[in-house]
């Protein structure tokens, strides 16, 4: 291995490559010609004001919408629209937490978490059960295994959905606004869970959010999108952007409210 590879964290190989991606709905283009990499093992936050196309980019990255132009590669393999032949390899590598949680309402929490495990592995039922328990314990839902999603509070649903997203120990976890609509404590708990997964399993995390506090806590790097430019307007470490950004839109975002300015989080 060469010297600079050893010294430089950013030189670890990209696990996701987004290349000249143009996405939109019908004739309306939301993002034009976007390119960036996500490195193995990093936590990348995608920021931007509402309506700038964060969710759209997110959906294109996991293959839920077809790009108008450009490609997304995960681990060197091109991401195809999910139902048109996405390879099982990619599907297993990726866990997704949707904005609304998207738990299956007819299944109990345990069944929800067991669903991807049963789908993709041949583990015996006893092991599946243990695994489900571990995952639910990890998000603090021990004892709630047999409840239906509708019998839970919003925060608990979100955490259960997180347990389902990480059921297979995916290499990459995608989060769409994990803390939307949650109290600060639950939201901080989710941040801690994200950090723990990232540290213990080396999971790469892509997280869409506009919670400044959580960005500063969890993200190694951020990219910021803008509605008018339809592209990335800033990229870098969150602290660096917060301290040194000159672009007014970035400054506004990071310094919009003094209450959020709590100094470095350790």
């Amino acid at each position: 291995m060469s010297e600079d590879l050893q010294s430089n964290h950013t030189a670890s190989p990209p696990i996701i490559s987004v290349r000249n991606l143009t996405v939109g709905y019908g004739d309306e283009i939301v993002l034009r010609d976007v390119s960036f990499d996500v490195l193995q093992g990093e936590v990348l936050a995608i920021l931007g004001r509402s309506g700038c196309g964060k969710s759209t980019l997110f959906k294109a990255m996991v293959g839920l919408i077809e790009p108008i132009q450009g490609e997304v590669y995960i681990d060197g393999e091109k991401v195809l629209p999910v139902l048109e032949g996405a390879s099982e390899k990619i599907l297993r590598k990726v866990g997704v937490l949707f904005q609304s949680g998207a738990l299956f309402s007819s299944m109990t929490l345990a069944e929800n978490v067991a669903f991807p495990i049963r789908l993709f592995t041949k583990l015996a039922e006893r092991i599946v059960e243990r695994l489900v328990m571990l995952k639910l314990a990890e998000v603090g839902l021990t004892g709630k295994e047999r409840l239906l999603p509708s019998e839970l509070s919003g925060g608990m649903q979100k955490r259960a959905a997180l347990a389902r997203a990480m059921a297979l120990d995916p290499k990459i976890l995608f989060f769409d606004e994990p803390s939307a609509g949650l109290d600060p404590v639950t939201s901080a708990e989710i941040d801690q869970t994200i950090l723990r997964i990232n540290a213990t399993l080396g999971t790469t995390v892509v997280i869409v959010t506009h919670e400044l506090h959580s960005i500063l806590t969890v993200a190694d790097r951020v990219i910021m999108l803008d509605k008018d430019e339809k592209n990335i307007i800033a990229a870098g470490s969150p602290w660096e952007l917060k301290e040194n950004a000159r672009d007014q839109r970035v400054v506004d975002f990071f310094n919009r409210s003094p209450a959020d300015d709590r100094g470095p989080v350790r």
Binding site: Q6, Q40, G41, K93, K171
Partner: peptide
Amino acid sequence: APAAAQSSGEPVIRSAD
């Protein structure tokens, strides 16, 4: 220390396949 391992260029985490 996964980070240290990564910087030595040898990935700790192997893909499931």
